[in-house]
Design a protein around this nucleic acid. Structure first.
Lengths: 226, 226
DNA sequence: TTCATAGTTCGATGCTAGCCGAAGCATATA
DNA sequence: TATATGCTTCGGCTAGCATCGAACTATGAA
């Protein structure tokens, strides 16, 4: 009758404020130690430890031991994408933890979503790739067209390893600030890395903001015109 | 302390087993009454009531009063897609066990809803009346057009007493097997009575089934063509 | 009118789970 | 070795909340 309330378990896992804070912190894509996450959530290490083992057992996190540290990260892209979806719905319904802060506009403009680009620029990139026919909607997902392959390789992205991986190359991820989709998957991740390498953008320490340089921003807007 | 949407609140809302059961039931797309949802979750109506008001306040549900029933449905598509995302992430072995509408095909086809016609034929009648311009959506309700008045009177329905009554003449009523609207109100009631009088249909004792005779069914389908 | 049904509100109860202090491991450095 | 740090386990405390019985409201049926 009441066989394993799956989503209830998942919901309760995310439903605790301390755990939600940790997950949000991990959404930046960086792996963090247990102590850092405890500080992030504002709780003692003991409490954080139980939370972390619960989330790991629940499949939300993966952990890597390194010396006497334990680094935690989101288990996979799907977890990150679920968190973004929830943020989108929460924002839409007006459930905000605090009023919008000064960092808010920068966050809305460009930020990391786990390991790919989100925000206004992320959505623009997705729109541009679709408009130019580089990406195309496929059954239940996104596909890369031949033109798209050429474009990616022109960006010095080696597609071969991406295709051999079991990880989906193109996925759409709902943007919580724009209510539109942006590009996730290994290609989305590779593109963001490329932006860093090109010097177009860099991460702001301690936040999810991706800061584009003036030249980088111009290059980006040219590359992903609408 | 932290900026951004409150996913913990959303998570805790979904994180309770009883609430998750109700939400999963509603994921079928059909609107269900509070009692049905209580049975679905295996809890008493009192408990269900508090859960439902919480979920409504949290923006997950919308409710529609229908006589002494309250039909609950997911607030919008975003809620549904979030639930599906969560089900996808959770081990997907849990099968949906929604106790949906009537299993009896005859009940789905034509039955009484209090005093008016529901089921496939009820929905068809509503669709036809709207398509022909006999009924028109008004603010928060339904209105009878001049053409509609003529049609009703051609059906030997005396509109005068209906208009003098405080009871609304035209109301839309959510069909529990079709999840579409059919016609309620005093006009809906009068029409069903007229079908009985014409010998088109009769009630099956001890059930809510409305049995149309072969001739009656043909006449009905002609009268309410699409 | 009176009765029946759908649903809500109130109050009390009991269980769960988050929380922290203290102690125990584990891994580093000296 | 000794000592410090990162993290976990244990025990007990407490707050929150899901739950239900009982009473109440609202609507429909007879």
């Amino acid at each position: 009758m009441k066989e394993g309330p799956d989503i209830a378990f998942l919901g309760s896992l995310i439903g605790d404020p301390a755990r939600a804070n940790m997950l949000t912190a991990l959404l930046s894509g960086k792996a963090l130690t247990a102590s850092e996450l405890a500080a992030e959530a504002g709780i003692t290490p003991q409490t954080a430890s139980t939370h972390l083992s619960k989330m790991e057992a629940g499949g939300l996190l993966q952990q890597r031991r390194q010396g006497r540290h334990r680094y935690f990260a989101l288990a996979d892209d799907d977890v990150g994408s679920l968190l973004e979806t929830m943020m989108g719905l929460a924002a839409k319904k007006g459930h905000l933890r605090t009023r919008t802060g000064p960092k808010d506009p920068a966050l809305r403009y460009a930020r990391v979503c786990y390991n790919h680009l989100a925000g206004d620029l992320g959505v623009r990139m997705m729109d541009s790739l679709l408009a130019k026919g580089f990406l195309t909607p496929e059954n239940e997902g996104l596909g890369l067209t031949d033109d798209g392959r050429a474009f990616a390789e022109g960006f010095s992205i080696d597609l071969e390893p991406l295709e051999k991986s079991r990880r989906p190359m193109c996925k759409s991820c709902l943007d919580w600030s724009n209510r539109r989709s942006h590009l996730a998957g290994s290609l989305g991740s590779a593109l963001l890395t490329r932006f860093y390498d090109l010097g177009w953008a860099r991460r702001i320490e301690g936040s999810r903001i991706v800061a584009f340089s003036p030249r980088g921003e111009k290059a980006f807007l040219d590359a992903f015109a609408l």
